[in-house]
Design a binder for these strands. Structure first.
Lengths: 241, 241, 241, 241
DNA sequence: CATGAATGAGCATTCATTCAT
DNA sequence: TATGAATGAATGCTCATTCAT
């Protein structure tokens, strides 16, 4: 894989195919069809479909890291809010986002059976927890957050965020995520934020762009616009003081 | 499906097959192999494999309801602790439990693509939320819990529990669940429990027995013993006062 | 494989496909095409193509044993001559016979790489050597053959016969087999046969019928006729006195 | 193919790949991997894989001729013994030799389906028979051998040798070759050798070196040592008087 | 009810060969 | 010469589902 364009093309095609078919029904053909290349080429570049998907997970981590870098300049509470909303609402248009997270959940679901996926996913999750802890720790240092155990809180935070998202995806018809978000602000962040700090309205920076390009010409969706959480979650500021 | 014994046999076989192969690799043959009947018979009783799995989810709800009935006599805080530990630690031996939840997660993962699964799973989830809300509401009534919005709290609680379990299953190597549990007790229950009430040490009643039998002769594991959470979560009472 | 008709059908189809394509280019489809059944059925009855071919070799041994039984009543020297000509000229029409032996040789060729084939082929070869030794031993007992080491002679005999056939198949344009046959009669049998015994003109009993039927309606070739070696080998009796 | 070094490199690689994978599983990649060149280059030098293999057979004949030239100075009975042992035991270490002959047998097996291979193999075989006849004819002239038909005897001899080797390769677990060798000495050579001549203990001259180099730096194995047949065949002189 | 046999639609993967550079 | 990238045509095998009995 000497040519990064080809990898990008395959990764983008994989992303699209995952959104459309889900992991369980993902075939090599589905991926190739979203490429101007042949199915055989996939196996020229990867030893197996599994390898390809594992690389896809890795690719996502790279995109995530790029995105995280963009939030460095925000204050801890802003970063926290950004993090939460990115987690809960993500990037891409609504349908695509749901499709994508569904597919990713399917891949996670295979982790117990699949060493390779497990390894990549853990790598990705380690980054996630590191970032969350870093944000909390910074907040404690700057005095924006009350003193608490950042590791434990990060674990709780991410469990809740992940659970909320997964449940929204797999079960809910109503705005389950919004409900959890307010509860989280009220019950968890209220304890964490210092007296005079309120939980900022979510503001996402440039989204994670799967395609990795800068011009947003990807057909992965209108990925360069700043996303706002839907209105019903706007109640956050009310619940946060 | 006129004969309930046959249904039980098929459901038990499905459970075992799911534990062993996971949903993605579950074949009709796998199920039939765990039965003294033939593969064709499955299609005599169900129109498709999908139908069979959907019925399996329904079957689980029935078992859940039976199990819930057994907790009616506990105090709200006891029921809450029981609920939490059942959710996080479940029934069955350790391996089986994990296998089972992994397989169930796979099925949930299909919900976005599968109307039928979605319907059954929502039914199951509705029961779950009802129970959680009921427990919280009862606690408020008896004064064991402080006044709060039970629906929102239930949503938060379940999101966290679900997220913790899923993350333990799909990502964690360490005792992630234990970490989340303590954080939850410290940050969420502390607010909920009235001044003089502490979070009880988890005590599970008779477990949900998938097999539904009363004699416990099933090979689904030693399912009738009362389970205790592992030691590291026993710290709950410490963190809850 | 409860129904022997199906096995027979598959074996016959395998025989024909082997004759036509050779082992190297034998595909499951080729076999299925010579059946009124589907390709999938082959894998219903056999776990793999390899298993099927191994069973085919076994099937041949069964046919061989049936054929051998028919020669029990001949005198040792007659049996020897029959054995030699069966080995060198075999059954079936000329083209088919060659094709078949070629395919069998390909299978033998895989033995060093394939445990399963090796096992079946050895079984088949053990029968062959047993029969040859039995013939020689009987001849010594009846005084038709001079005293010699039957095991060693059988080894030499079969090596020569096998080599001759293989070389005819893979290399020769001329009547190489005939040449070897006369030389064998002159140089080997001359020593073995007692003073007053001459090597009988080859006379094959009913041929080995791959199909195993009794009516010869198989399309495996006109297999029930008594075969005679081609004329040019008729010189055998000349060289043997 | 202007550069003989490239041809040598490809031929050597082909030899090694054949030993390791056998003909049936020989891929162009396998050959290229044993070269410092790319797979595409093979198709630059040869129109097809088949062409390459055909050239490989031709290459072997060239090596054989070089080797034969070295035996010119021996007496006919010495050359005969050398020829026999070269045929039965060949050159190279034990494993390699077997692997190689197995692969060659696979190629021979394709001859009936493949004009090109057939042509090359016949050329190679013609040389073999010529040499055998030449040795026998010389022996008759010098009086070392009794008068007999050299062509017929050569045919018999080679059939037996070839059969023995092939059977050892594809079937035998025991020392089948040794058994045939003694029988051959006792039953065939005894008739051929003049009264006062005994079959010499096999002595191989410099072996055929596939690589064709003179310095023996090839990793084809320690190919320049004189090989001796295994002990159990040393009984030849005993059986030959 | 119950089943063994049967099948069609796929699917991941392989590999000789081609081609632009 | 030389190669990395690319591909079409197969191939063995799987599995939900059907059906005759």
């Amino acid at each position: 894989m000497t040519d990064p364009d080809v990898r990008d093309a395959i990764m983008t095609a994989t992303y699209e195919a995952l959104c459309e078919h889900g992991y369980t029904d993902l075939t090599a053909q589905d991926i190739a069809d979203r490429t101007d290349k042949s199915k055989s080429l996939l196996f020229y570049h990867y030893d197996s479909k599994e390898d390809l998907v594992a690389d896809f997970v890795d690719y996502l981590v790279e995109r995530f890291d790029e995105w995280i870098a963009e939030t460095r300049d925000l204050t801890p509470s802003e970063r926290l809010a950004t993090f939460v909303d990115w987690f809960l609402y993500g990037s891409g248009d609504d349908d695509e986002r749901q499709s994508f997270h569904t597919a990713m959940l399917e891949i996670r679901t295979q982790a117990p059976y699949n060493e390779q996926y497990r390894k990549e996913l853990r790598k990705s999750d380690d980054r996630l927890r590191e970032i969350a802890e870093e944000i909390l720790r910074n907040g404690i240092e700057t005095g924006e957050f009350t003193d608490h155990d950042p590791e434990e809180t990060a674990a709780l935070l991410i469990a809740t965020l992940d659970g909320a998202r997964i449940r929204q995806l797999t079960l809910a018809e109503d705005d389950y995520i919004g409900q959890v978000r307010s509860a989280m602000v009220a019950r968890i962040f209220d304890d964490i934020l210092a007296e005079d700090v309120s939980f900022p309205e979510g503001l996402l920076p440039d989204e994670i762009d799967i395609e990795g390009g800068v011009d947003g010409t990807s057909d992965l969706g209108p990925s360069s616009e700043t996303r706002q959480p839907e209105d019903e979650h706007g109640s956050s500021e009310d619940g946060a003081e």
